[in-house]
């Protein structure tokens, strides 16, 4: 099923498997290094095979898929926005994904500025003068899309890798673009 040819995404939360059954001794957690090892080797190979733009496009799409499934399965989407954000902040902290902070929320126009500190993807990477959290861009957009039922875009404007010590994202309703 995983290797089935297809032109649509069919990933669901169930594809992650039953970890209680599958890893009774080793448990749920793995070190961040192994997460990054996976992400940055895939990125490296995708860039050599497909080029930077296509690789980033794929990473964003994957992030979006993950964000939407994460929201659907780990968050209560019936909450009001502020409660939802508080819940998201709590879950991301508990799961050691990052420290979410909302800087601005314009609910009328659906425009937001968020930061993620100690980000799983990039915190501590060497400064390379570029933003590199494309997976987070997709992940955040996916969460917003799943929560609101509308299309969103998340764009990273500051990144640890660009020397900013914090990852800052501008999240807008897609119609704005």
């Amino acid at each position: 099923m995983f290797n089935q040819e297809r032109d649509y995404n069919k990933f669901t939360w169930n594809d992650l498997g039953d970890l209680d059954q599958g890893r009774p001794n080793l448990g749920m957690k793995i070190p961040v290094l192994f997460y990054r090892l996976l992400q940055y080797t895939w990125r490296d190979v995708m860039i050599t095979e497909l080029g930077v733009d296509k690789a980033n496009e794929i990473i964003i799409k994957a992030g979006k898929l993950a964000g939407a499934q994460f929201c659907e399965n780990m968050l209560n989407r019936d909450l009001e926005f502020n409660e939802f954000v508080a819940q998201l902040q709590q879950v991301l902290k508990e799961e050691a994904v990052g420290i979410l902070r909302v800087e601005k929320a314009d609910l009328e126009n659906m425009r937001f500025i968020l930061t993620i500190a100690e980000d799983l993807d990039c915190s501590g990477l060497p400064t390379t003068n570029e933003v590199i959290c494309q997976y987070d861009e997709g992940f955040i957009a996916g969460i917003f899309e799943s929560y609101t039922g509308k299309l969103f875009s998340a764009k990273e404007i500051d990144c640890w890798a660009s020397g900013d010590r914090v990852c800052r994202f501008r999240v807008n309703l897609l119609e704005d673009y």
Partner: peptide
């Protein structure tokens, strides 16, 4: 980018904006 002198202040700025919100 790469202005490492400012990065801790950017972090502080981000935290203060979040606290304001």
């Amino acid at each position: 980018p790469k202005n490492f002198l400012s990065s801790p202040f950017k972090e502080l700025h981000s935290r203060l904006r979040h606290l304001t919100w």
